[in-house]
Simulated scan of single mutants.
Amino acid sequence: MKFSLVIDGILPVNISNFDLNLLRVLDALLRERNVSRAAERLSLSQPAVSNALNRLRELLGDPLLVRVGRAMQPTPRALALEAPIRAALRQIEQSLVMGEGFDPARSRQRFTIALTDYVELICMPQLLQQLAEEAPGVKIAIRHLSPSLPAAALDQGELDLVLGRFESIPKRFSSRRWMSESLRLVARRDHPHVQEAPDLSGFLRLRHLWVHGGQTKGMVDQWLGEQGLARDIVYTTPNYLQAAHIVAGTDLTVVLPARLAQHFARLLPLQVQSLPFALGPFHLDLVSVAQREDDEALQWLVERLMVIGRS
Rank of each mutant, 00 (worst) to 15 (best):
S288V: 03
E296N: 05
S311R: 11
L270C: 09
D285N: 14
L270F: 12
A278T: 14
L305I: 02
G309P: 06
R292C: 04
L298N: 02
E296C: 04
E293A: 07
L286S: 00
L301H: 02
L270S: 12
L275T: 08
V307Y: 12
V287Q: 08
L275A: 04
D294Q: 12
G309M: 09
V307M: 04
L298F: 11
V272I: 05
P276T: 02
V272K: 10
S288D: 09
D294N: 13
S311V: 10
I308E: 04
E296L: 15
L286R: 00
Q291N: 07
E293M: 05
V289D: 13
R292L: 10
L305C: 01
D294E: 14
E303L: 14
F282M: 09
M306R: 05
L279V: 07
V272N: 08
F277V: 10
S274Q: 15
L301I: 03
A278W: 07
V289N: 08
Q273H: 15
L305K: 01
E303D: 12
V307R: 09
Q271T: 14
Q299L: 05
R304M: 12
A278L: 13
D285G: 01
S274A: 15
I308P: 03
A297V: 13
D294P: 04
L270Y: 06
V272D: 06
H283F: 13
L275E: 06
P281D: 15
E293C: 02
M306T: 06
V302Q: 01
S311M: 08
S288C: 13
R310L: 13
L270V: 13
D285I: 00
R304C: 04
M306P: 07
L279G: 15
V289R: 07
L279H: 02
H283A: 07
D295A: 03
L286Q: 00
Q271M: 12
V272R: 06
S311A: 07
R310V: 12
W300C: 01
A290Q: 13
L305V: 03
A290D: 08
Q299R: 01
L275S: 05
G280L: 07
P276Q: 02
R310P: 06
P281Q: 14
Q299V: 08
Q273L: 05
A290F: 00
Q291F: 02
A278M: 10
L279I: 14
E296D: 14
V289E: 13
